[in-house]
């Protein structure tokens, strides 16, 4: 299956991106800690995480950031170029719970599209608000 490509002509301010739902397993958090050489205990040791006042182990902030980044690149397609992304850590994310990624186009300037994105829990509480800019190819 070849990946789909979004073109500049396809988007307008207000356009809504399809929702992506993620649910991280504890194994995924462990693998991400290993792949990023991150020994921080709050991501794999539930007793220690509770000692620090968290209800469970925490999903790494930069992992959520990577998902926000992927949300943009997978929507935009292989010939788009991600220019920037900013995210704010507003509340903790935990494994084995659904995380909803939603986005919409807030500006189009030349061939650069600005997106407003949220990562939220199923009740709609935003855990990480984000913005991104991406350069889209023109059709033809």
């Amino acid at each position: 299956m070849s990946p789909t490509q979004v073109h500049l002509e396809d988007v307008a301010v207000g356009a809504v991106l399809p929702r992506v739902v993620r649910n991280a397993s504890r194994v995924q958090l462990f693998l991400y800690s290993a792949a990023t050489w991150n020994p921080h205990r709050i991501h794999y040791d539930v007793d220690y995480a509770r000692f620090e006042g968290h209800e469970d182990v925490l999903v790494h902030g930069p992992l959520q950031g990577a998902w926000l980044t992927q949300y943009v690149t997978s929507w935009a397609g292989p010939r788009a170029r991600l220019l920037s992304v900013q995210w704010q850590n507003r509340a903790s994310a935990f494994p084995e719970r659904d995380l909803h990624f939603d986005g919409r186009v807030t500006a189009v300037d030349g061939d650069v599209v600005t997106l407003e994105i949220t990562e939220a829990d199923p009740d709609g509480r935003v855990l990480m608000p984000a913005t991104a800019t991406v350069r889209l190819p023109r059709r033809g």
Binding site: P3, Q28, Y32, A35, Q70, T73, S74, P78
Partner: peptide, 15 residues
Amino acid sequence: ESQRYAQAVGDLDPV
């Protein structure tokens, strides 16, 4: 290392 990271994130972008 790059591919292990991509797999851990769950981002299997073919590029």
